[in-house]
Design a protein around this nucleic acid. Structure first.
Length: 951
RNA sequence: GCUCGCUUAACUCAGUUGGUAGAGUGCCGCCAUGACAUGGCGUAGGUCACUGGUUCAAGUCCAGUAGCGAGCACCA
């Protein structure tokens, strides 16, 4: 093996081999265990969030696979309607200078499929680099035939059950993308703006109580006055009671509008009068319905002013309503129209006041433009009935969120859930399976033939399919069962559904998780007819942020690419990557400067295993993760440590007698017995952590065992045996070296697949295992075996460790070279101490460079020495020629100070009558024992100090 | 406004049922020892945000305060 761990040499080739051998496929044996990957956008590329979640999913999958489960990690991608369409449109514009309309619908969709063919596989290729053990043969795409069938089936069935309906409703309209979006796709941002106080003149000579011939309404959107169909006041408002039922005259358009009484008007706020625009405001829309006001639409699809309002009755029927718009406003963008209208109010003396105002403005999360509430025909899912079952499943614990606090978020959303607008005015997506005849009748069915048949529509009647497509999340919501062949009750569906765990980010709990639960439980029932959940556990991850805790974003230029963590990247390429192809080029200079400062040497290659281990180690629950390059580096070093430890093991075992094939005697050293016990305990703890989704604790556990126990102590302890032991002893130690390393590799494999496979292929044959045509990934996961925990040996070795540490401490503090052999004196020696010393001379000589030890008889005078305590044993290192008196006194003082602090604490407790009488006996006895030990140690240190000082 | 989270070493974070505060990185010494300088050995470093309460005992439980963050709602 190479002296230095070099991940790039080992990672690339292994994955292909695993894939070719079919190790990623379900074994068909054992209990089923399945995870459905959250399908990444087909347009996407791998970011840190993916790397994080995929690491967790792969770790779980590999773990369960090794435990003998019939394991499926279902992979696939999402067609990502808006994102993909935007991307291909941009490409089309850049390369051919055309819009999608130039091509037409069919040709444009062909273009997208072409594009998907070419570059849609980016993210799946990247997934392979992470070592993801997904079954590629089952890869699905949300626009596949099978999944599309499932989508249609669900739509048709929901429609039949009256859970899908179509209606003219106020929707969140994206004037840039020309489509409706759901509430969830709206991002509310706090902005500074203005509140305009407008005077609406009263008609017929009416006056307010304080004698004015107008009332004042306040609005943040003056341009919508073109669509006003009412003014509301509160019924209890004495100021305006007389005016209820009377009219005002809207300026500019000179339309009479009635003053109505509605609870929506708050007497305390503003003037108490509210303009009502049912066509462009969600609250006003509700008011309009209550009072059966007509709804006027003043905007076209670009949110520019129409030539004539489109009028609808309060329940969405087209209305004869003469509402012309003055010509000079025609076609004006809403923000331009606002300026013009405000100016006209001002000229007419009707602008009472302009007030600074902070308000929340809705933006489209994809387009970044202000969303316009617009009256359009859309399809909706009536979700309340579905939500009930879905809420209950979580409440009853059928589905469990990890961490649990996210259940609150889920409940609060579900309890106040709004109908889901599922139609999108896009081309890329699942076309809505609804057909219209020339009279405007709607027919829903799986295809046109079915529609004609079911509705007795003659062949000569023209039917036209709905132009709209479904919200991408509609198909994603079916993911766990549509990928397994639903609506057919396939074997896969029976075997792998419900899935075991969903690993995803908190940001899509509403978008995806909640809807998945609703849809799945509605359409899937178990053999008893009980709704089936999509997954039993939802493991919710936090966001990965940069080292300052800022969200990673292209515009901030702080995005880290997981592949750069793996392969490394030079500074120039990194700068180019971060500043190239920017939406706001003016930010480039700052980004370049910051990048050059933070990554002056570029980024080194750390390898997939180090990246995965880091992500796992940072995966503490319930909070975001601030990325830390130092951690990555530390865990890369950990890989190197494992690599070199393995080199040591191989170096001492290859072509040696390790005791696996012959039955010659093996003699196990104390260290051998100890490390075997340590390993078993590590297996136990590690497994528990994985079972509890505590990847951070699991990673820490294995790190500590590998570095500190196995490398730090055990390998050092094998050296004297290997160099001086008898053949039987050497055989025992070699056997243990191989046993522990081989098992450790299997234990670590789910976290670090590449390095463990590479080493295992070398190590396993020495353990008598056949590695031809097999892989560590299909070996058994280590199981806790209590028989290997020899508590006596473990206690003995812990004592030896304490002894060695005591000597090292004195050496370190007293500046005695590690090479200087020591002859130590012992005071207060018990027979057990002596036995332990005698048994472990070789270890002590090797690790503490202990040449000899002499037990002093009772009362025998010791020469001036440096002292350390090992339990009640006093270890004395004679100072002659070695130790500086002043330094030793200082060291002893330091130790005394520490002891005294502790002693004070314990004494205080023991002197506290209440503690003595109320604390449980075990706690009391423990404190007493500590007290005795501390007192004894203190007395000895004081004695030693006096001796030295009197020299 | 409602709900939820966070505040522990210089930094990033653990801390399971209350019982002597931990890890990694970093800092400071010393060390080319035959697995590893991506290393070894040894130190130093904490009023657990604050205030009060419960308890023999509080980082941990309860109430409140402050700062930070998230989700939802409202905003004529």
């Amino acid at each position: 093996m190479e002296k230095t761990y070099n991940p790039q040499d080992i990672e690339q080739s292994l994955y292909q081999g695993w894939e070719e051998k079919g190790y990623f496929k379900p074994s068909g044996k054992g209990e089923a265990y399945s995870i459905m990957i959250p399908p990444p956008n087909v347009t996407g590329s791998l970011h840190m969030g993916h790397a994080f979640q995929d690491t967790i999913m792969d770790t779980l999958t590999r773990y369960k696979r090794m435990q003998g489960n019939n394991t499926l990690w279902q992979v696939g991608t999402d067609h990502a309607g808006i994102a993909t369409q935007m991307l291909v449109e941009r490409k089309l514009a850049a390369e051919e200078g055309k819009t999608r309309h130039d091509l037409g619908r069919d040709a444009f969709i062909d273009k997208i499929w072409d594009w998907k063919q070419q570059s849609g596989g980016t993210i799946t290729k990247q997934l392979r680099r992470l070592g993801a053990s997904v079954d590629w043969d089952r890869e699905r795409f949300t626009m596949d035939d099978g999944l599309s069938e499932a989508v249609k089936e669900v739509f048709v069935r929901l429609h039949k059950e009256n859970l899908i309906y179509r209606g003219k409703r106020l929707v969140n309209w994206d004037p840039k993308l020309h489509t409706a979006i759901s509430d969830l796709e709206v991002e509310n941002k706090d902005k500074k703006g203005h509140m305009w106080h407008l005077r609406y003149p009263l008609t017929d000579g009416l006056k307010t109580k304080d004698g004015k011939d107008y009332i004042v309404v306040a609005t943040t959107r003056p341009e919508t006055m073109l669509g006003d169909t009412g003014v509301a006041v509160n019924a209890d408002d004495e100021r305006y009671q007389d005016l209820i039922g009377k009219d005002i005259l809207l300026p500019i358009i000179n339309r009479r509008v009635t003053i109505i009484a509605d609870e929506h008007a708050d007497m305390e706020k503003g003037t108490g009068c509210v303009k009502i625009t049912p066509g462009h405001d969600f609250n006003d829309n509700e008011v309009g319905k209550r009072h059966q006001l007509p709804m006027l639409n003043i905007f076209n699809k670009d949110a520019a002013i129409l030539t004539q309002c489109e009028a609808y009755s309060f329940d969405g029927k087209e209305l004869e309503f003469d509402a012309p718009i003055p010509e000079h406003l025609h076609g004006l963008d809403r923000f331009t129209a606002r300026k013009v209208i405000v100016a006209e109010f001002q000229q007419a003396g009707l602008l009472e006041e302009i007030e600074e105002h902070s308000l929340t403005v809705p933006y489209g999360d994809r387009s970044g433009v202000v969303i316009e509430p617009l009256l359009t025909d859309q399809w909706y899912v009536r979700v309340a009935p579905l939500a009930e079952t879905a809420t209950k499943a979580v409440r009853d614990g059928e589905i469990e969120f990890v961490p649990k606090q996210y259940e609150n978020m889920y409940f609060s959303w579900m309890n106040d859930i709004q109908d889901w607008c599922i139609s999108r005015q896009l081309w890329w997506g699942h076309r809505i399976p609804a057909w219209y005849d020339n009279e405007g009748n709607v027919f829903v069915g799986r295809d046109e033939t079915e529609v004609r048949k079911d509705n007795n529509i003659a062949d000569d009647v023209t039917l036209k399919q709905d132009d709209d497509v479904l919200d991408t999340w509609f198909s994603s919501a079916l993911w766990t069962f549509s990928t397994q062949g639903w609506p057919t009750q396939t074997e896969d569906l029976k075997t792998f559904h419900p899935s075991n765990v969903l690993v995803t980010g908190f940001d899509i709990i509403f978008f995806w998780v909640a809807r998945m639960i609703m849809m799945t439980m509605h359409f899937n029932k178990d053999e008893n007819g009980k709704p089936q959940v999509p997954f039993k556990t939802v493991y919710v991850t936090g966001l990965i942020r940069d080292d300052n805790g800022d969200k990673m974003s292209k515009s901030k230029g702080n995005v880290l690419d997981p592949l750069d963590m793996i392969d490394g990247i030079d500074l120039e390429s990194l700068v180019e990557k971060r500043t190239g192809n920017m939406m706001q080029p003016k930010l480039a200079a700052k980004i370049e400067k910051d990048t050059r400062k933070v990554f002056s040497g570029g980024i080194e290659a750390h390898g997939t295993d180090a990246l995965r281990f880091t992500l796992a180690a940072m995966a503490s629950t319930g909070r975001d993760i601030n990325w830390d390059m130092n951690r990555l580096e530390g865990y890369r070093n950990f890989c190197n440590k494992l690599w070199n430890a393995s080199r040591y093991v191989l170096m001492n075992t290859e072509e040696q007698d390790c005791g696996f094939i012959n039955d010659l005697t093996k003699e196990y050293s104390l260290a051998d017995r100890w490390i075997l016990g340590q390993f078993e305990q590590t297996v136990k703890v590690f497994t528990e952590h994985l079972d509890n989704y505590r990847f951070d604790l699991a990673a820490n556990t294995i790190y500590d065992f590998t570095w500190n126990e196995f490398c730090g102590w055990y390998l050092e302890l094998t050296k004297p045996v290997i160099m001086q032991g008898t053949e039987a002893e050497q055989r025992g130690t070699r056997h243990t070296l191989i046993t522990v390393l081989e098992s450790l590799l299997r234990l670590m494999h789910p976290l670090m697949p590449y390095i463990t496979e590479t080493i295992w292929q070398r190590v396993a044959p020495l353990a008598g295992l056949d590695t031809v045509d097999t892989s560590i990934m299909v070996q058994a996961f280590p199981a806790f075996n209590e028989v290997n925990v020899d508590t006596d040996s473990m206690a003995d070795l812990e004592w030896v460790k304490q002894f060695i540490l005591a000597i090292r401490n004195i050496r370190g503090e007293m500046d005695i070279s590690p090479n200087t052999p020591l002859n130590v004196l012992l005071k207060n020696v018990s027979s057990e101490d002596l036995r332990r010393l005698d048994d472990n001379k070789a270890f002590l000589a090797s690790l503490a460079k202990l040449e000899s030890f002499t037990a002093l008889n009772n009362g025998e005078q010791a020469p001036a020495s440096a002292t350390a305590m090992v339990g009640s044993l006093e270890v004395l290192i004679p100072m002659a020629g070695l130790i500086d008196v002043a330094a030793e006194v200082a060291r002893l003082n330091k130790q005394l100070e520490k002891l005294e602090k502790e002693l004070a604490r314990v004494t205080g407790k023991l002197n506290n009558e209440k503690f003595v009488s109320k604390a449980p006996e075990a706690v009391l006895n423990k404190e007493k024992a500590i007290f005795a030990e501390l007192s004894e140690a203190k007395a000895k240190l004081v004695e030693q100090k006096t001796t030295i000082e009197n020299l």
